[in-house]
């Protein structure tokens, strides 16, 4: 049966192990944003043996490039971007202790394998619901790569950000399962 689970960051291995595909997860606390260009910089730093601008242990990374905040607002629209573009980078970040990723769309087999190895989950947010999702974001500040504009790394404080478990830490895949359930081929 689908469950609704409230999680507060940072996450532990036990938090991750308790999650199953199809669970609704309401994310609370600090999370970080990063998409294509920021991921490339992070991985380039790792290759050069340099420290990262954020400690990813126990953290959640949200694949999003928000639209600008209107005056007096925290943030603009902030829905997930397509995750496969981060697949070349994700296993290295999972190895550092990243516990969850929020995005949309299927992940590569090597990312799903890395989630099993390092105990992490992939959470889906509803693509194209950026106005709705932005309502869960209470604070936003740029913590690295301001020059990347929408692609800068932001530290967000979220309250009950709605997501659903797409890949758990046991290799299961909700997209595959959901599609099989309704396919009529």
């Amino acid at each position: 049966m689908p469950r609704t689970i409230t999680l507060v960051t940072p996450l532990t291995d036990q938090d991750v192990e308790a999650l199953e595909i199809g669970d609704t997860v309401l994310v609370n606390g600090v999370i970080y944003t990063a998409r294509d260009a920021a991921h490339k910089r992070l991985v380039d730093l790792l290759a050069a043996g340099q420290p990262l601008p954020v400690d990813l242990r126990g953290q959640i990374m949200f694949y999003v490039g928000p639209s600008p905040a209107r005056p007096g607002r925290v943030i603009g629209a902030a829905g997930p971007t397509t995750s496969y573009r981060m697949d070349p980078y994700a296993p290295q970040l999972l190895a550092l202790g990243l516990k969850a990723m929020i995005g949309k769309g299927k992940r590569a087999p090597e990312v799903i394998a890395a989630m099993q190895t390092y105990k992490a989950v992939y959470l889906g947010a509803i693509g194209g619901a950026g106005a709705l999702i932005s309502q869960a974001i209470q604070e936003a500040e740029i913590v690295a790569y301001e020059d990347l504009g929408p692609e800068a790394i932001r530290r967000l404080v979220v309250e009950n950000l709605p997501t659903i478990v797409i890949n758990d830490c046991r290799g299961n895949d909700l997209y595959e399962l959901g599609m099989q359930q309704y396919a009529q081929d």
Binding site: G79, G130, A131
Partner: peptide, 13 residues
């Protein structure tokens, strides 16, 4: 929400 609060429908404008 997008219409009433003047937030883009999607962050990818």
């Amino acid at each position: 929400i997008a219409r009433e609060n003047r937030i883009p429908i999607c962050q990818d404008c």
